[in-house]
Design a protein around this nucleic acid. Structure first.
Length: 501
RNA sequence: GGGCCUAUAGCUCAGUCGGUAGAGCAACGGACUUUUAAUCCGUGGGUCGACGGUUCGAGCCCGUCUGGGCCCA
């Protein structure tokens, strides 16, 4: 596109056309609508803090230059008011009076400046007759002309517009600003907790020759240089375990995973994930770590272990969290005793009786998990560790030291969704090979989520892997648990299909 | 994958029985030196998601498609 101003298309909606014409007029008058720099001596927040106790109708004599986006504009004949807002939502009133700025300047303010424009105002810090802390302009300058009208402040943006135009959402909706700033607070808290406990952060490949570490469909890509297929990772697990073999005894990674599956209110195709492994720990010690990570994050964002959601509901993350047994919960829901040794035909009968649509390809462990989700999931609002998952759906997990058919694996549920999972990790390379070969066999039978046999991972294990606990937790889901929001509100720019022109 | 809901002005939404397209905010013109979503007077702004069908006549009824949401799998 040329920098020359072309004819302004009259196919544009009225308001867009008018603003483009104003931009062109400014340039014609020699006024730069997009200057390289404008005066700014303080932020609005700094002014608010410094003058918070200023009495009504007071002039301070202090001259400052302030900037902000205009979100309300109230023009009277010879005195104009505007509300400036800066990025974190802090607002301050600007006042322009005829006797301070002169006839031309106030006329220009009224005609050239629109809602949504970013301006710099230089003048005295005062309080108005109504007590509003304000800057009384001696002069003003456009910092950036907005060519699109802001949505009206008084109706909530539709969900689609919020997601598609997050930049607008952040301008107009306080909750969006809070949520956007909550994520880095949580991330910082998580890293601090890890560092206090001597965990080392690593970054492992996202582009992988072989995907593994979870049951999920991957995104496929291709490397031109290597002339081979690559996968976006579905989990970092197998690389973090290689780190542990190499002696990074306490390790964690916080980064993105990609799963080529459906998206809904708790699933996003790309999502932020924590994984951590603790040598000489087990599923119990890693559960304690997980609880500490979450409790510290809750304290960081709300100053309390009881967090209040935006709809007013409260979740208590304090105390020792409840533990239930997966198979006991199933037994209770089914009205008969179910264990990991219950024959698959009985599980199918129970599932069918409960109204679950049974996929004939499901193995016993998958059936048990489906039954559990059906009967118990919705009741797990307060943080709850669900202990003892079936071993046949947990190919990377050590078998339970006492209970046959069960693995030393827990899932942590909050608000009815799975927030984290933790294991006593399988460290016997021979059993691991058998499990992965069995996975490959399921894959060959058409299970698109089955794992592959990663020979280099097995070789690493064969060098000797210390006993350890491991955990994984979705960062977006942690945000959900702390805020009560859907996953698409915790992610600034969730994937959306393109708009049609 | 299946079911239900939804798409109308820049934004958020009404639109009855199928009969000339509505509101609030926003915009434009005017008045106003203490407003707080300022107020008052006036004005303009629409390919009613797309395509097809029924009808004398479709924002509305029917079909297909596209986008969005919810529920189920």
């Amino acid at each position: 596109m040329s920098e020359q101003t072309p004819t302004i298309g009259d196919d544009l909606p009225e308001q867009l056309r008018i603003r483009r014409e104003k931009r062109a007029d400014l340039i014609a008058q020699g006024i730069e609508p997009y200057p390289v720099a404008v005066a700014r001596t303080k932020t609005l927040g700094e002014v608010r803090t410094k003058y918070q106790d200023l009495e009504t109708d007071t002039a301070t004599g202090d001259i400052e230059s302030l900037t902000g986006r205009i979100i309300f504009k109230r023009d009277t004949g010879k005195l104009c008011f505007a509300t400036l807002r800066e990025g974190d939502g802090t607002e301050l009133q600007a006042m322009l009076s005829l006797d301070k700025v002169g006839e031309d300047s106030i006329t220009a303010w009224k005609s050239q400046v629109d809602l949504g424009d970013i301006v710099s105002v230089t003048g005295e810090i005062i309080t108005s007759k109504r007590g509003e802390l304000s800057i009384l302009a001696n002069s003003w300058q456009l910092a950036s002309k907005s060519l699109r009208p802001l949505p009206n402040e008084h109706n909530p943006l539709s969900e689609e517009t919020r997601v598609r135009m997050r930049y607008v959402d952040l301008i107009v909706r306080p909750e969006a600003r809070v949520t956007a700033r909550m994520r880095p607070t949580v991330m910082r808290s998580l890293r601090e907790t890890f560092h206090e406990l001597d965990f080392i952060e690593v970054e492992t490949p996202m582009l992988q020759v072989q995907h593994g570490g979870a049951a999920a469909r991957p995104f496929k890509s291709f490397s031109n240089a290597y002339d081979m297929d690559l996968f976006l990772r579905i989990a970092p697990e197998l690389f973090l375990k290689r780190c542990v073999v190499g002696g990074i005894e306490r390790v964690f990674e916080i980064n993105r995973n990609f799963r080529n599956e459906g998206a809904d209110s708790s699933h996003s195709p790309e999502f932020a994930m924590i994984e951590s492994y603790q040598s000489f720990g087990d599923w119990r010690s890693i559960a304690e770590l997980t609880q500490k990570l979450i409790q510290n994050a809750a304290m960081a964002v709300s100053g309390s272990l009881i967090v209040t959601h935006q709809d007013g509901r409260q979740i208590d993350f304090g105390g020792k969290w409840r533990e239930i047994s997966l198979y006991e919960a199933i037994s209770e829901g089914a009205g008969e005793t179910v264990t990991a040794l219950t024959p698959i035909d009985d599980l199918k009968r129970i599932a069918t009786k409960l109204g679950i649509k049974v996929d004939p390809a499901w193995i016993a462990g998958k059936l048990a998990e489906e039954i559990f989700e059906h009967v118990a999931k919705d009741q797990l609002i307060e943080p709850t560790f669900v202990m003892g998952f079936p071993v046949d759906t947990s190919p990377l997990v050590r078998a339970h030291r006492e209970t046959p058919g069960v693995a030393e694996k827990w899932d942590l549920y909050v608000e009815g969704f799975e927030l984290a999972t933790g294991y006593s990790e399988l460290i016997d390379p021979v059993i691991q090979r058998d499990r992965l070969v069995e996975q490959a066999r399921l894959g060959a039978k058409g299970d698109v989520e089955a794992m592959q046999v990663d020979e280099d991972f097995l070789r690493a294990m064969e060098f000797g892997m210390p006993p350890m606990g491991g955990m994984g937790m979705g960062v977006d889901r942690l945000l959900m648990a702390l805020t009560g929001l859907g996953i698409r509100e915790t992610i600034l720019f969730p994937l959306v299909k393109p708009e049609i022109e």
